[in-house]
Design a protein around this nucleic acid. Structure first.
Length: 420
RNA sequence: GUGGGCGUAGCUCAGCUGGUUAGAGCACCUGGUUGUGGCCCAGGAGGCCGCGGGUUCAAAUCCCGUCGCUCACCCCA
């Protein structure tokens, strides 16, 4: 019986893996322009980090974590998100005790034990940023500008940025009660799930996809109309800065998020080309998290975007991120002595940072040329007994079919010239 | 955790009202050129028809179970 990759995981080969590299480097490059630097954190953490930050009552913590005991009996969890680990590292290294802003970006694997479906995996990868240390609304706007900027550079189209504010701990609590009061008379008209949400977390009712439930909620009340003074003015400022920075967005009072630590600004970017799992990115402000995890009160904002989903949208929109490397060289070597000389030349080419490869199956010249053609090599160097006797080689251009005779001692220089 | 769809060659799939050696396209290999790719032609290799059990003279085909994949709910990137 064959061993297969675990459910919900994927193996990735060229050329798709190269697409990943390219997309990742574009994201990183954009983030660096906005002042962010790379952070790397472990794939597993103490379990408490997530139960405390994400919220013990959330689905992620209740049923989606890969949790195990290590050999010393400590409870560990493969990270189901990256914000908490970044904040943990930030506090652990004393960064909260210094003034100023810390801007970090990451590209990390994320693990959630869910039933896989289109766009949802048990191991996926997120690129994200965290701006830690300031409540300035221009940071909220900047983070969203960066996210949309990344999508634009990659060529993604028809994305919708939805923005909301879920307020702070005080105004959200008040709103939750107001919402319950407003809905209680008509509660029996809602679907089963919504009636359950009503008790657990009424804000989640806004997430329901059921047409009827949506209609019942269409008249509000909405959280963004019920913010306290501070949260309200912060939100208005964020929205006006988005306009200033030419970020198209839709204000959506129904947008709520699944992690407890969010405060004030929340946002999500959805694509119409992704099926049910249509969010390509999302994020928001989490002003209470640093303190919750034992640091000094520190306001923060960030986003995460799913690599697999970004790649999926790119595929749907037929976008390629292929790299156009320098022309590669294939060495067709015929016979033992020509092969020895050719292997040496191949080594010299590689030393000169030229992509060079050869045949390892003792194929005929015809088979070797066919292989070179199929694998997309631009140049083929042919060395047989005949060439070797004259200390020469043939260079064949696979596009034009033309051949040129060169001296072996000049081969590297000649090929470098062609490649440049 | 719940529900639907699907498991046949490396890939995409046909065959499934049961009936000889299980097919196609793409990919792969060889030949058509004593040492010249792509196109074309000819040939070739490649399959416990997911696995286990049952019905039957006979099962890729029908039935049951199981595993896997997939889509959706839930939730989220």
């Amino acid at each position: 019986m064959k061993i297969k990759a675990p459910k919900g995981t994927a193996d990735t080969f060229p050329p798709v893996s190269e697409e990943w590299e390219r997309v990742g480097s574009i994201m990183a490059q954009r983030a660096r322009c906005y002042g962010y630097g790379l952070i790397k954190t472990p794939v597993f953490e103490r379990t408490e980090l997530f139960t405390r930050s994400i919220g013990a009552a959330t689905d992620i913590v209740k049923k989606e974590m890969y949790t195990f005991e290590d050999r010393a009996g400590r409870s560990m969890t493969l990270k189901p998100e990256e914000t908490a680990p970044v904040v943990r590292a930030y506090i652990e290294h004393g960064l909260d005790k210094r003034p100023g802003l810390t801007k970090l970006y990451y590209m990390e694997p994320i693990f959630r034990y869910e039933r896989p479906q289109s766009g949802r995996y048990r191991q996926h990868h997120q690129f994200g940023v965290e701006a830690i240390g300031s409540a300035d609304p221009s940071l909220d706007a900047e983070v969203m500008r960066l996210l949309m900027d990344i999508y634009a550079v990659l060529g993604l189209e028809e994305l919708v940025l939805r923005v909301n504010s879920v307020g702070c701990s005080s105004c959200r609590g008040a709103f939750r009660e107001k919402l319950r009061d407003a809905l209680s008379p008509a509660l029996n008209l809602f679907c089963e799930d919504c009636r359950r949400r009503y008790g657990e977390n009424p804000l989640r009712l806004f997430d329901c996809k059921n047409e009827k439930c949506r209609e019942l909620l269409s008249d509000g009340p909405f959280i963004d109309d019920n913010l306290c003074e501070g949260c309200g003015s912060h939100f208005r400022r964020v929205l006006s800065l988005l306009e200033l920075l030419d970020v198209p967005f839709v204000k959506d009072g129904k947008l709520v998020r699944g992690l407890d630590y969010y405060t004030r600004t929340t946002f999500e970017v959805v694509s119409g080309e992704l099926g049910a799992q249509n969010a390509v990115g999302g994020g928001g402000r989490y002003d209470g998290l640093v303190e919750l995890l034992g640091g000094r009160p520190t306001p923060c904002v960030g986003f995460g975007t799913g690599m697999e989903r970004v790649l999926a949208v790119m595929k749907e929109q037929d976008l390629r991120c292929g790299m156009q490397g320098p022309p590669a060289v294939f060495l067709a070597l015929l016979g033992d002595r020509p092969r020895e000389r050719g292997l040496k030349l191949m080594y010299e080419l590689r030393q000169a940072f030229i992509h060079a490869d050869t045949d390892y199956f003792d194929g005929s010249l015809k088979a070797q040329l066919r292989q070179a053609n199929k694998r997309g090599f631009r140049l083929v160097i042919i060395i047989g007994e005949e060439e070797l006797a004259g200390k020469s080689a043939k260079i064949k251009d696979m596009l034009t079919g033309e051949e040129e005779k060169i001296l072996l001692v000049e081969a590297v220089e000649r090929i470098k010239a062609i490649c440049s």
